[in-house]
Structure formats: C-alpha cells, structure tokens
Amino acid sequence: MVGETLELGWDERPREEAALFNPAFCGEIIALSVSSHHKAARRPLSFPLAFTILPLALHPASRAGLPVQASTTFRTWAVNNDALLTPLADRIAHLRGVTREALLFMIQLRALDITQEGLTPGETPIVLTRKLETETIETSDIKRSARLLGRWFAAQSSPLLILQALGLKP
C-alpha cells in the first residue's frame, strides 16, 4: 500500500510506485490544477483542495468518471458519482504524503507559491506548451483531468461546499 512504502527511501520503493508518485510528476499535476484554477478565478486554490487533485486525477476510475467540460454542474456530478467518491477519503489519506512531498518540491522550485488563502502559480511556473514525445495516453489523461479539476473548482462558490459535495469533512 502506498502509505506504507512512502517511508522507504527512493531506491527502496517499488519501481512503479516511485515512477508514478515521484514529486516532479505529482507536483506537475498539482501545478496544472493550480494554474488552471488561477486562470479561471484569479484567486488561489484552497490548500485543502490540493489534497483532492492526485486522488481524483491519478485514480483511473475517478479520472474516467470526470466530465469532459468544467461547465458540468459539480453538485449534480458528485451526487451521480457517489460510488466513485465513497473511497475518496481513504485515497486522500493514502496519498497525503505524496501530495505533501509534491507540494514541497514545487514550492522549493518556486513553481508554486503558498499564501494564507491557498496555492498560486509561483515566480517560475511550469510551462508545458507541447506534448512530450514520451507522454502516454494515460499521462495525457491525468494532465487533462488536473486542468479540468482546477477550472471546475474555480467555478464553485466555496471550497467548503466542494469538500462537502465530495463527501469529505474539512
């Protein structure tokens, strides 16, 4: 299980886990959400919402269940996807260390900035204008989902209402 192996050094972690959950990749996913959120709302992404991005974007069933467009009503989607959201709290708990590690990495690189209000793009934001040659369809889908989540969260009135719709207790 992810939470158990995060205590191991990078050379001791299972290869697949080290590749998928490395701070650079996970940080990029979070940074894409933060950037999309900031472009759409011109306000920081609430810090607690940052912990929902990886569990939703990396989990294949959750990612597949996300709508194609951020204009989909969030509350309706959450009610209609209760089966996907029921295990979300556990996934967030298991990926909490991964998320922290990714956030710290991005903040150290100045790709993200943290304020009292939340996360914003940093002084040197990640700029990926073209698709990498080695990028897989799954990686592209993860990045698309991360951008969608940023825009979608920006369209909601309150981070608290988002967390409640996801079945989470703040």
Rank of each mutant, 00 (worst) to 15 (best):
V2S: 12
E4M: 06
E4Q: 09
T5G: 06
L6V: 01
L6H: 02
L6W: 01
R13Q: 15
R13V: 15
R13I: 15
P14W: 12
P14G: 11
E17P: 03
E17D: 14
E17F: 15
F21T: 02
F21L: 13
P23W: 05
A24F: 07
C26S: 11
G27Y: 03
I29W: 00
I30A: 08
I30C: 06
L32Y: 00
L32R: 02
S35F: 08
S36V: 00
K39N: 00
A40T: 08
A40G: 04
A41V: 01
R42Q: 08
R43W: 01
R43V: 03
S46K: 10
S46P: 12
F47V: 13
F47R: 14
A50Q: 11
A50E: 10
F51M: 09
L54Q: 01
L54T: 01
P55I: 05
L56D: 00
H59R: 00
A61V: 15
S62D: 04
G65S: 02
Q69N: 13
A70P: 06
T72F: 05
F74L: 11
V79G: 00
N81S: 07
L84K: 10
L84N: 11
L85C: 03
P87I: 07
D90E: 08
D90Q: 07
I92P: 06
L95W: 02
L95Q: 11
G97D: 03
V98S: 12
R100S: 08
R100I: 08
E101Y: 07
L103K: 10
L104F: 14
F105S: 15
L109Y: 03
A111N: 11
L112A: 12
D113A: 14
Q116L: 04
Q116R: 05
E117L: 04
E117S: 03
G118S: 08
G118V: 08
L119C: 13
E123H: 14
T124H: 13
T124S: 12
P125C: 14
I126S: 04
T134Q: 08
I137M: 13
E138F: 08
I142D: 00
A146R: 00
A146V: 01
A146I: 00
G150C: 09
G150L: 06
G150K: 07
G150P: 12
R151W: 00
A154H: 01
A155K: 13
A155R: 14
A155F: 05
Q156N: 08
S158G: 05
L160C: 00
L161R: 05
I162H: 02
L163M: 15
L168P: 06
K169C: 07
K169L: 09
K169W: 09
